[in-house]
């Protein structure tokens, strides 16, 4: 891999910008994904309710369930636009380190998930009667780290399965066993904050998230070139 330069950072930004622009342009898909994750919340509320304490206790769990489903869909979607007109072929021919492509797609995916969480958080607060205003910065940190870890794995595996058969059903099967600690840590850390209003108790979980993000950022970026090599 050639050494990273200013040009590579610019390329990461360009790839991310392109992905976000494509995502915004396909409004139907974005709306469908948002609506889908909203529906997951509501269905889980019906499944768990109407007892208010039960709902409140389940708030963080349902939020992350909805995010996880939507995240897989969106990562898979971002490769669909690459495959449609042979664009991925071209993207891989630019004289850039392959890691820049991964990082670009990762950033786009992450930002999308952040927007999604920004919409789902108040919704889940309303439906499940959980409090998000208390210790909001700490909650946001948890969400940022959790969605980043999720996007890392989802983006990586979306690339890995991009030209395999049965891509859509394969993706969750591969992603979820890896993502267990992220989901678990995010749920626990956010429910500490949302239910008990006690950020100190969730510090361990947040550290776990940060460690996961750091390790996989390095690992995935390093081995990504082998994934797209044919």
């Amino acid at each position: 891999m050639s050494k990273a330069g200013v040009g590579d950072v610019a390329a990461v930004v360009e790839v991310a910008r392109k992905d976000l622009l494509l995502e915004l342009r396909s409004k139907e898909v974005v709306v469908a994904t948002l609506f889908f994750s909203g529906m997951v919340l509501v269905i889980l509320a019906f499944a768990l309710g109407p007892d208010e304490t039960a709902l409140r206790n389940a708030a963080a769990g349902t939020l992350w369930t909805a995010l996880a489903f939507a995240g897989v869909t969106s990562a898979s979607q971002s490769y669909q636009s690459e495959l449609d007109e042979g664009a991925l072929e071209q993207l891989l021919l630019y004289p850039l380190p392959r890691a820049t492509l991964f990082l670009g797609k990762l950033v786009a995916n992450w930002l999308f998930m952040l927007v999604l969480s920004a919409l789902l958080l108040p919704l889940s607060a309303a439906v499940f009667g959980a409090s998000i205003a208390q210790h909001l910065p700490w909650l946001l940190l948890t969400v940022a780290l959790g969605t980043f870890g999720f996007s890392l794995i989802a983006t990586f595996y979306a690339a890995l399965t991009a030209n395999l058969r049965a891509r859509e059903s394969l993706l969750p099967v591969l992603i979820f066993p890896i993502i267990v600690p992220v989901i678990l840590a995010s749920v626990r850390a956010s429910s500490e904050v949302m239910l008990l209003g006690n950020p100190a108790e969730s510090r361990g979980w947040v550290q776990l998230l940060a460690g996961f993000d750091l390790v996989y950022l390095v690992v995935c970026t390093t081995i990504f070139p082998f994934v797209v090599e044919e």
Binding site: A11, V15, K18, S81, A87
Partner: peptide, 24 residues
Amino acid sequence: SVFGGAYGGLTARENLALAAKLYG
């Protein structure tokens, strides 16, 4: 390529601007 390899969701200009950036 046979297909052209551009993004359907971007305009011609945006596609080319992206290519220019990625070619440096």
